[in-house]
Lab assay of single mutants.
Amino acid sequence: MAAGGDHGSPDSYRSPLASRYASPEMCFVFSDRYKFRTWRQLWLWLAEAEQTLGLPITDEQIQEMKSNLENIDFKMAAEEEKRLRHDVMAHVHTFGHCCPKAAGIIHLGATSCYVGDNTDLIILRNALDLLLPKLARVISRLADFAKERASLPTLGFTHFQPAQLTTVGKRCCLWIQDLCMDLQNLKRVRDDLRFRGVKGTTGTQASFLQLFEGDDHKVEQLDKMVTEKAGFKRAFIITGQTYTRKVDIEVLSVLASLGASVHKICTDIRLLANLKEMEEPFEKQQIGSSAMPYKRNPMRSERCCSLARHLMTLVMDPLQTASVQWFERTLDDSANRRICLAEAFLTADTILNTLQNISEGLVVYPKVIERRIRQELPFMATENIIMAMVKAGGSRQDCHEKIRVLSQQAASVVKQEGGDNDLIERIQVDAYFSPIHSQLDHLLDPSSFTGRASQQVQRFLEEEVYPLLKPYESVMKVKAELCL
C-alpha cells in the first residue's frame, strides 16, 4: 500500500493539533497551500530580480507567473513527485505547466533550498508574528487579574506546605514575570531571523556568478533584492546548502521555554482548584465526569500541561538535527523538520489560546482563602504575639514557653481530632496574655502579614508589564474561544 493518505478522510490519521486544537490561522501558515504558494512567490521574486539585473526574462513571463501564483494543481504535483521522487522539481514542473512561456526560467540558477529553506524562514517569521500578540493578550488578562487582587491576602506555599502570606495578585505576578520573559525572547528570536537568500547549491553562489558572467556586484544585488522582497532586513552571508540548523534550535528553545512557563502556571491553577481557592472557567453544560456528576475538573489547565510537556520535548529534535548536518548538509534534517517545526508552533498556539481562555474567566473564592488563612495564621502570628507581650512588660522566655504549650495543644486538636485551630481562643482565655487581649485582632490582621506584596504588584505592572504590552494595544480586544 502506498504511503500517505487522504487526510480529510475519517479513515486516515490526522494530527489532533490540526484537527482538534490549533487555530485556523496557525494551521494555514503550515498548510501545503501556504507552503507551495510561497515557493511560487519566491520563484517570481527571483525572476523579477534577475530581470532587473539584466537576464533575458520578459515582462510577459513575469506576468504569467504572477497570474498563476494561486493556480496550484495539487493532484498534478503529487503525481509528479511520485514520478520524480523530488518535491521541488515536482512543483517546478507543475508551475511550468500553467506558465508555459515562463517554464524555462522558473528556478533559474537556484537549488531546492532556495524555495525550501527560504519558505521555512518566512513561515517561522509569520508563525512567530501570530504567537506574539496571543502571548501579549494572556499577559494582559493576567495583569488585569493581578491588579484587581493585588491586596487580597492568601496563604503562600513553599514545598506545598503553608508559608508566609502573600497576595493573590502577587502570586499571579510570578506567572506574568515568566511570560514577559517569554514574550521578550519570542520577539528577540523573531527579529534575529535572517533570510537564507540566493546562495546556490553549497552556499557559494557559483551558479549565479556564472549567470551574471562573473559580476560579483550583481550577485550581491540579486541576494539583497530577493531578501528585501521577502520582507527581511538581512540575509546570511555564510550558508551551506541550507541555512544553519542552529536557527531551528533557537526558535524551538524559546517555544519550549514558553511551554515550561505555561505548565507551571496551569499546575498552580490545578492545585488551587483542589484547594477550592480558584477555578478555571466551567461552562453551564460542561460535564466533569461521566460517573461523578459533582466533579469540576480543571480540564483546560490539564490540557495545557499535557501539550506543554510535548512542546518542551520537541527542542531535542533540532538539537540532534543540527549535530548531524555533515559538511554542507545531509538530508537527516528533512523529514524531522517537516514534523517538529509545525508541531512546535501548533502546540504553542494551542496552549496560548487555551491559557487566554482560562485567564479571561478565572474565578476566585475569597471566603475559602480566608478560612485557610484562619487555619494557619495563628501559628504564624506567634512571633508577633511574643513581641507584643514583651512590649507590655512580659518575659520573652516565659511567653515563648506559654505559646509553645498552647500551640501544641491547638495542633493536637487540628491533627488528632480534625478540629479547627483554636490557638487564639486559648490565648484569649489565658490570664497571662490579658495585657494584649485587646491587640489580638490587630495582630491577626492578614494584611499585616503580606509585606509589600501589593506595592510590588503595582510597581511591576507599571514599570515592566504595561510598557512591554504597549506595541500590542491594537490587538488586545480579541477574545479566545474554545470549541473543545
Rank of each mutant, 00 (worst) to 15 (best):
I122F: 13
D117I: 00
K101S: 08
K276Q: 06
E220D: 10
L209D: 15
R404K: 12
E328C: 04
P10K: 15
V324T: 14
P298N: 06
L55R: 10
A77H: 15
S19P: 06
R459P: 07
P378W: 02
D6P: 06
F232R: 01
Y114C: 04
E277K: 04
R196P: 00
A273T: 13
R37W: 09
E463W: 08
P471N: 15
H442F: 13
P298M: 05
S290K: 03
Y243N: 09
S257E: 09
W175A: 01
Y13E: 07
T158S: 12
R337G: 04
S448W: 10
K477F: 11
F232L: 12
F327K: 06
Q184A: 13
W43S: 01
Y294S: 04
K82T: 12
K224S: 13
P16Q: 15
C173W: 00
D317G: 14
A47P: 02
E401R: 11
T52L: 09
K199C: 08
S334I: 04
V475W: 09
G96V: 10
K66W: 11
Q375T: 04
I123G: 08
R374L: 06
D332V: 02
H107Y: 02
V364C: 09
Q416A: 11
Y13K: 09
E401V: 04
F36E: 09
C266M: 15
E283V: 05
G419N: 10
V251R: 04
D32R: 12
R14K: 14
D129F: 11
T313L: 08
Q164S: 10
M476W: 14
L135P: 02
E464A: 05
L142A: 04
Y432F: 14
T242K: 03
I373N: 01
A308Y: 02
D117N: 01
D129S: 14
V324Y: 09
L352S: 08
C399G: 07
L183E: 08
L142C: 10
A392F: 08
A136W: 05
T166H: 06
Q409T: 09
K367Q: 13
L443P: 02
C305S: 11
I122L: 15
Q63S: 13
G393R: 05
S67K: 13
D445W: 08
P56T: 12
T52K: 14
E25M: 13
I57M: 03
M89K: 01
S407V: 06
L482V: 12
D333G: 06
L53Q: 09
V29C: 10
S67F: 11
R296T: 13
I424D: 06
R149H: 08
K187A: 13
T450A: 08
L165M: 07
A381C: 06
L155C: 02
D420Q: 05
S359P: 12
V138W: 10
